[in-house]
Design a protein around this nucleic acid. Structure first.
Lengths: 237, 237
DNA sequence: GATGGTCCTTGATCTGCGTCAAACGGGAAA
DNA sequence: TTTCCCGTTTGACGCAGATCAAGGACCATC
């Protein structure tokens, strides 16, 4: 975990030209609001495996992810890890329940975030019901995803877990980058295992099995879906 | 699942005298706001095992639980069930992500809910930033609980799951009713199993084992903690 | 008091996934 | 080219928890 690089403040037209302008939290804001927001935000870059914030740390900031991928995870005292989510560009990270973070976030590959002071952002939202509703909407969507993931963790087999993960991840990438035959997997096998409540060996074996069954093809850093329908069926049932 | 009984509209002082006045969503509202809200809400009672709403149904209402306990669950096509939460008085049920419910809610024992039209409530909240912030706060708290539960489902042993459940449930009841030596368990063993991602047999065996180890005492419909420290240690580690 | 139903517990056995251990493969450094 | 490293795969084996099956315990109804 190396020292993070702080980029300069976004220039005058930064927020308006932001890559995630139209689908992040900021989608709820008009040009005037955005101009005000620009003064509160700073772009910050993190190298692979750097920690954006850690469990138990004070929550001083909120974040929008601009580029790259983050993993969010919780650790048990004995070191067992559960990844509670992966964060993609446009996702908002800024609804701390308490003064301390209840999970850690670190970079999978290089990332850029848009960071804002938590208190300044709270003040900013205070009388912007449209923004509050937007944040609400995002929170509720995340809650819904969290519940879906509970079903996966509590009630699905290893093969179903892996298939569900691949389909879900593909759908998120498609929404971001448009259709593609291959599904990039920037996270490693251990991350996938800790997300699905499995071991790395079981994930690896399951990938191999799906490959033998001609459902997927496995490449370094990605997979491609040979039989999307089969994969979707496994994810649904 | 029998027909639900619709109680009369709350009388003039209902909202102000409401049992959950001070800790539900409505805690964010003053007397004037409450008076307005009264016209939008109806108390509805459900008998044990009646369904308040079901997965895939249209979301027409939002709810505050007044009395009793609800279970929230998702079903897989083949019937596997994951309970995603238990609802206690004061809890708010009203943040649908889409036009259809993504989970079902039904009564564990007799319950009373305060029901409001979803659209009327949305209109009501529109220019009440304090209420929006309150709803946000509740959503974020639920999200945090959901993530904790992911850790439990993905990374804990059966004994840890049961201990964590008992401690968590006790804490919620204490917050509601004050300290007590016994922990009421209105839900049955199958519910506990489906909440913890276990089978009913494993839950039963784990209760028996905790009793043999003098951690808990098991009674019909409740348990008491003989060694709360041991139970808490199992829940933490 | 008998009957049936529901929920819970217990025992015997099975199995999916975890654990332990070794080998593979591709990229970086020497 | 060789060596090392690290992420990944594969194999052998073990076990926590699932499955299958049989018994309680309690309660309502007759």
């Amino acid at each position: 975990m190396r020292i993070s690089l702080v980029a300069g403040a976004p220039n005058g037209k930064a927020c308006n030209d932001c890559a995630i302008r139209d689908f992040g939290v900021c989608a709820a804001l008009d040009k005037t609001d955005l101009r005000e927001l620009e003064h509160l935000s700073r772009h910050v870059r993190f190298a692979s495996c750097e920690t954006v914030f850690a469990q138990e740390e004070m929550t001083t900031s909120v974040y929008n992810l601009l580029e790259g991928v983050l993993r969010l995870y919780k650790l048990l005292p004995d070191g067992r890890r559960q990844i509670v989510g992966f964060v993609l560009p446009g996702d908002f990270l800024g609804m701390p329940i308490s003064v301390r973070h209840s999970f850690s976030a670190d970079a999978i590959g290089a990332v850029t975030v848009c960071r804002l002071s938590r208190t300044a952002f709270a003040r900013y939202t205070e009388n912007k019901p449209h923004l509050l509703r937007r944040i609400n909407e995002l929170a509720v969507r995340e809650l819904s995803q969290a519940r879906d993931h509970m079903v996966l963790l509590g009630r699905r087999s290893a093969a179903e877990k892996v298939a569900t993960f691949l389909i879900g991840w593909r759908d998120r990438l498609v929404q971001l980058n448009g259709p593609s035959t291959t599904v990039a997997l920037p996270m490693n096998r251990q991350d996938i295992a800790d997300f699905l409540g499995l071991t790395i060996e079981t994930v690896s074996r399951t990938f191999t099995k799906l490959e033998r069954d001609h459902v997927i093809g496995v490449l370094p850093g990605s997979v491609y879906l040979l039989d999307p329908a089969r994969a979707e069926a496994m994810a649904a049932a």
